[in-house]
Write a protein that binds this DNA or RNA. Structure first.
Length: 463
RNA sequence: UCCCCGUUAGCUCAACGGCAGAGCAUUCGGCUGUUAACCGAAGGGUUGGUGGUUCGAAUCCACCACGGGGAGCCA
């Protein structure tokens, strides 16, 4: 295996003259008379290691096997590069071929491919420049998220992936069953008898860890979840996945203002973290994917977010003089076109909208004293829309019970959620961030299917 | 789920009712240090599927499949 200090990114830091071995996959090869250049990459950094092979050093049959996609080890000496493009290069003295790659059939060429084509080659696309950069940034982002919360004393809690509570209420759920679909057990009334199923009742893949997160926040004060989430919505857009990763912090003794401040601090922290640690990858995105991405990230990391209430937002939209496809009136939910106007034209920065009408938000959000709005917040970002959704939770038993009844939700399913308000309740708040949405924002990638290793969408679960 | 657009060589695209083409990739040859190298040549096609219109269909029509963009739902 490659040990710490032996990755290609480490070799760039070694002194000239040292004997080293590099292992990796051949990205391209260029030949001149009497000299060969091989770009080698092991995934550790964006930059390839240039291997120089002088005539006669390597046997001919080895040389022929060094083609795009092949896996090789190169032993040799680090030398100063006489040409521009890299400071050091590896002068080969011996080469081992681990795995050949027939150039007649290898699907990736050294010049550009469309994202759609590469998506069909999800087993090979991690070796490409774009996807190498995407997944290094994804890794750094994940680490930044943990670091942010851990530094602030938050407890990382693993909420369940399989849930038998049908009260999460955030969209269509995937069923989990071991029943024989060809021979379903029936009750006397003719319904499916889930009593005979694995869990003795219907079970699903989670759509959110929030409600369980609240349990832990009311014991550990500050907590966060970070795990996979599943939605069986038939959404066919570049911004939706059936399986995605979500981060959900939940804080006791926290009102909506604290919540909003934490969301802003959090976003700025993770953006700055990635700016600091993934500079070469981000430069690539800025050059090849979206030439505004660096400027946008630096701006967002430093400038304060805009904060308006929903009621303000409606006024602004009404006063804009635009003809909206969806009508703007108090009580209507904000549509994509409205969010885009606010973030991309009116304010040109992330905008936090708070205090939405209670009719368009979830039952668990805390009522404001005006009787018509709740303490909800959405963080809207230019280009991708809603990136964070959150709220202060209703902590008053009687009010929560009333809200559950008003929305005609099955009261008994929420018994434990209600008991949290009965025994030692506290004001608390939280929010959710979609990892892939954030990654789109960081990289400028246009389709969410290209920021997750193996995307799952309606009609598609390959690899 | 709805509305548009697309599907032609390994890839990206042209040809839009009358002989199926180019660039890149691949192979071969050339080039004394290349940087998504360069120069020359060659090979490579059941035009997504099924039906229909027509003397003749990659091209027009219908349905299906797959992909993309927008919308809804949302993270």
């Amino acid at each position: 295996m490659i040990r710490s200090g032996e990755y290609i990114r480490d070799l760039f830091q070694r002194p000239v003259g040292e004997s080293v071995t590099a292992r990796g996959w051949v990205k391209t090869r260029r030949d001149s008379k009497g000299i060969h250049f091989v770009q080698l990459n092991d995934g550790s950094c964006f930059q390839d290691l240039q291997v120089v092979i002088e005539a006669g050093v390597i046997p001919d049959d080895t040389l022929t096997a060094i083609t795009t996609g092949a896996c090789i080890a190169v032993a040799g000496e680090l030398v100063e590069s006489p040409a521009s493009g890299q400071a050091v290069e590896l002068k080969a003295s011996s080469i081992t071929i681990y795995g050949m790659s027939d150039p007649a059939t290898y699907p990736l060429q050294k010049k550009g491919h469309t994202m759609e084509f590469l998506r069909e080659k999800a087993h090979l696309r991690p070796r490409s420049n774009t996807f190498g950069a995407v997944f290094r940034v994804r890794n750094a982002l994940s680490y930044a998220i943990h670091t942010f919360f851990q530094e602030r004393g938050f407890l990382y809690v693993h909420t369940p992936v399989i849930t038998a509570s049908d009260c999460e209420g955030a969209g269509a759920m995937f069923g989990v069953t071991t029943l024989d679909m060809m021979n379903l057990p029936r009750t006397e009334e003719g319904a499916i008898d889930y009593g005979q199923d694995f869990f003795g009742k219907p079970a699903y893949l989670t759509v959110s860890g929030q409600l369980e997160g609240e349990i832990f926040a009311l014991a550990f004060s500050n907590i966060y979840t970070f795990g996979p989430t599943f939605r069986a919505e038939n959404s066919n857009t570049p911004r939706h996945l059936a399986e995605f990763w979500m981060i959900e912090p939940e804080m006791a003794f926290c009102d909506l203002d604290d919540n909003r401040a934490l969301a802003e601090e959090f976003l700025k922290y993770i953006i700055q973290y990635v700016l600091d640690r993934c500079a070469p990858d981000l430069e690539f995105f800025n050059k090849r994917i979206d030439n505004t991405v660096l400027q946008t990230l630096e701006h967002v990391a430093s400038a304060p977010f805009e904060h308006i209430t929903y009621t303000d937002a409606i006024s602004i939209l009404k006063d804009s003089g635009r003809n909206w496809e969806f009508p703007v009136y108090w009580g209507a939910d904000l549509q994509s076109e409205h969010e885009r106007y606010l973030t991309e034209e009116k304010f040109q920065r992330p905008v936090v909208v708070t205090d939405y009408p209670k009719q368009i938000k979830a039952f668990y959000m805390r009522d404001n004293d005006d009787g018509r709005t709740v303490r909800a917040m959405d963080v809207l970002a230019p280009r991708i829309g809603e990136i964070i959704g959150g709220s202060q939770r209703e902590e008053r038993y009687d009010v929560l019970l009333e809200k559950i009844r008003a929305q005609r939700l099955p009261e008994e399913a929420y018994w434990w959620y209600l008991e949290l308000r009965k025994y030692g309740s506290a004001p608390h708040s939280g929010f959710g961030l979609g990892l892939e949405r954030m990654l789109m924002y960081l990289t400028g990638m246009k389709n969410i299917r290209d920021v997750i290793p193996f995307p799952r969408t309606p009609g598609s679960a390959e690899f």
